[in-house]
Simulated assay, not measured.
Amino acid sequence: MRFLTLNTWGTRGRWEERESRFRDRVGGLAPDIVTLQETVRTPGADQARRLLGDGFHLAEQQERESGRPGAPDGQGITTASRWPFGRVLEIDLNLTDRTGDFACTCLVTEVLAPRPLGRVWVANHFPDYQLDHEPERVLQAAAVARRLEDLVAASPGHVVIAGDLDADADADSVRFLTGRHVVEGFSVCYRSAWEATHPHERLTTYAPSNPYQGDPDWPFRGIDHVMVRCAASGPTLLATSCSRVFDLGRDTVSDHYGLAVDYEPAPPAA
């Protein structure tokens, strides 16, 4: 299974040029599942469908951006899969009075993949973005993890969390997801694909070197993640590769770089 995640940067900048480059590049990457953030969907336009074409099933966030400075109307998140969806649900992440200006959410899709993969729960997680809102991101990560635990307990399968988490590996919200932090006596453990395949290399997906980057010194650099839930014996899917994509010259299509991950089922536990 090849997994791709990218914050598309909406329709900002030279959108038509960026769209053409994305379509060319994604054809070569040939992902099976894609999580996109900041896609624009309005009654007259569906950016994700234009980017991906007709070869994918799409699940779209319902409540989208409207009226926030710098964000186009209709901006939200999209999950795409070459395999059909079962259940699709959204987890409301407006958990404090500081998140009202942002359509933060987690879009959860049940992907019905063929054997030997089987059911894959995909959580396209898009929490609060503001630099000083880590308390909100922690609450949001815990809310998502609790809901995913309930889902997988009732309907077992793999669980992948992916998206623009607006926090790096040292943040409490990401440390919680990777099993290094406890929230109200509750913990989970997800294995980062980047950490599994690049154990000695710091992740950077939001960098001043990006020609589309408008923030000269944003403190958090590795903010886009793909991670798989661990069972008692470790991750249920093994990341065989994790590459930064849309990051070189004309391949760059957004103010974020993307990640492409190849997964295979983990061998049965001893």
Rank of each mutant, 00 (worst) to 15 (best):
M1K: 02
M1C: 07
R2V: 01
T5K: 05
G10I: 02
E17A: 14
E17F: 07
V26I: 15
G27E: 15
G28L: 08
P31S: 09
P31Y: 09
T35C: 14
T35M: 13
T39C: 12
T42D: 01
G44P: 08
A45W: 13
D46S: 08
R49N: 05
L52P: 12
L52A: 11
H57G: 00
H57V: 04
A59N: 01
Q62F: 00
E63W: 10
R64K: 00
R68M: 08
D73R: 04
D73P: 01
G74K: 12
Q75I: 03
T78H: 02
T79G: 06
R82L: 14
P84T: 07
F85E: 03
G86C: 08
R87N: 15
L89K: 05
D92A: 00
N94L: 05
N94E: 06
L95A: 05
T96S: 15
T96A: 05
T99Q: 15
G100K: 03
C104V: 11
T105S: 05
L107H: 05
L107S: 06
T109K: 06
E110T: 07
A113R: 00
A113N: 08
R115I: 04
L117W: 13
L117A: 06
V120R: 06
W121G: 07
A123F: 00
H125F: 15
H125N: 07
P127S: 10
P127G: 10
L131T: 04
H133I: 04
P135Y: 03
V138S: 01
L139R: 13
L139P: 10
Q140R: 04
A142Y: 01
A143S: 13
R147W: 12
E149I: 12
L151W: 03
V152T: 15
V152I: 15
A154G: 13
S155H: 14
P156E: 06
G157F: 03
V159Y: 09
I161P: 03
D166E: 15
S173G: 01
F176A: 02
H181A: 10
V182Q: 03
V183N: 02
E184Q: 08
G185K: 11
G185E: 06
V188E: 10
S192I: 09
W194R: 13
A196R: 02
P199T: 11
T204H: 14
T204Q: 13
T205S: 11
A207H: 12
P208L: 01
S209K: 03
P211V: 09
Y212R: 13
Q213K: 08
Q213N: 15
P219D: 00
P219G: 00
I223Q: 04
H225N: 02
V226A: 14
C230M: 01
S233I: 03
G234C: 10
P235V: 07
L237E: 09
L238A: 14
S243F: 02
R244K: 12
R244E: 09
L248E: 12
G249V: 06
T252S: 03
V253C: 14
S254R: 06
H256K: 15
G258L: 10
A260H: 11
D262Y: 07
Y263N: 06
Y263G: 08
E264I: 14
P267I: 06
P267F: 01
P268N: 05
P268S: 11
